[in-house]
């Protein structure tokens, strides 16, 4: 038993890593030849399912748009929350515990619930409220419909914990001596945070943002009811436009294709691009984090 046990655990580890390798390898082998410049830069002028013609540029654009918008919303909220927790809140206070608990629970809410929330809150409540207020008398809903803004806002709520946790970790790694030195020089708490603490934790904030982006880029479910579309003829030009999306497109190619075997190359190409995107984001985050933990002082 003393030999068998460790071998079995090593085997389990190997099996898990093999799954990752298998998925990566399979997708790469089948998708490699499909991902050409034409595929990346082409659109859906000749339909979504024309092998050799249909491209994924509008989907890449849509994904980029929703992710950038989400980042603009979630980074300030997440960083400020982490700053409050780590720099202002009393460590044992009740409110601190509540905020931490809420962040934790937010991380555990299933993505389908975020979809319902986006529909019920952002579209059905905020959007409808905006329409009543800004455009009384209009028949067509403007804000009370699916669109880029609400999809991004929903994703921002979903990824808030990722940013908070990573930022807090970075803030905790700032040596107490630096804060005290700044305070002792007559800097206020806020000045200390802005001039010393935040610059020092920049790479941690970056890690959190990248992880959040990676997570959001691959998410489909919250988009189902908040803004992603099977097909739109134009790139999204305003905040309430529906958009095509890379991850959503994988789902479309899997389920809506008129002839699944024939359109498989498109599917593999799209999956390869999506997987490459999300995994390289994760990889970057992992590398930055490893460098921080190896050498916490070296960060500027």
């Amino acid at each position: 038993m003393s030999r068998v046990g460790p071998t079995l655990t090593a085997l389990a580890t190997g099996l898990i890593l093999a799954m990752l390798a298998l998925i990566l390898g399979h997708v790469t082998v089948h998708g490699w030849s499909v991902v050409t410049w034409g595929f990346l830069s082409g659109g859906a002028e000749e339909g979504l399912f024309t092998v050799g013609r249909s491209g994924i540029f509008p989907m890449l654009f849509g994904t980029a748009a929703r992710v950038i918008l989400m980042t603009l919303l979630v980074i300030p909220a997440g960083v400020i929350t982490a700053v409050y927790l780590n720099e202002y809140a009393p460590a044992s206070g009740r409110l601190t515990r509540w905020v931490r608990g809420a962040v934790n629970h937010l991380a555990g809410v299933p993505s389908i619930v975020f979809g319902l929330f986006g529909l019920g809150f952002f579209i059905g409540f905020v959007g409808a409220g905006l329409d009543d207020w800004l455009r009384p008398g209009a028949v067509q809903p403007y804000w009370a419909g699916e669109g880029l803004l609400w999809a991004s806002a929903t994703l921002a709520v979903m990824t808030l914990p990722v940013v908070v946790v990573a930022t807090e970790e970075a803030l905790r790694a700032v040596p107490a001596g630096l804060r005290e030195a700044s305070l002792a020089l007559g800097a206020t708490r806020l000045q200390t945070i802005i001039r010393i603490v935040l610059p020092h934790s920049l790479s941690g904030i970056l890690t959190g943002s990248i992880l959040a982006i990676g997570r959001a880029a691959g998410e489909v479910v919250p988009l189902l009811f908040t803004g992603a579309a099977l097909y739109v003829s134009r790139l999204p030009g305003s905040l309430n436009d529906k958009f095509m999306d890379l991850a959503y497109h994988v789902w479309v190619l899997c389920t809506q294709s008129p002839d699944i075997d024939q359109t498989k190359p498109l599917l593999y190409g799209t999956v390869l691009v999506l997987l490459g995107l999300t995994l390289s984001l994760n990889l970057v985050a992992v590398v930055i984090r490893a460098r921080i933990s190896r050498n916490p002082q070296a960060t500027p």
Partner: peptide, 25 residues
Amino acid sequence: AWIKPAIEMLAGVPSVVLGFFALFV
């Protein structure tokens, strides 16, 4: 130091990709 990030990477695989993989492979 190698295995932990690698398993974290598995968490980074989007679920739509896992769904696709289950469906086709």
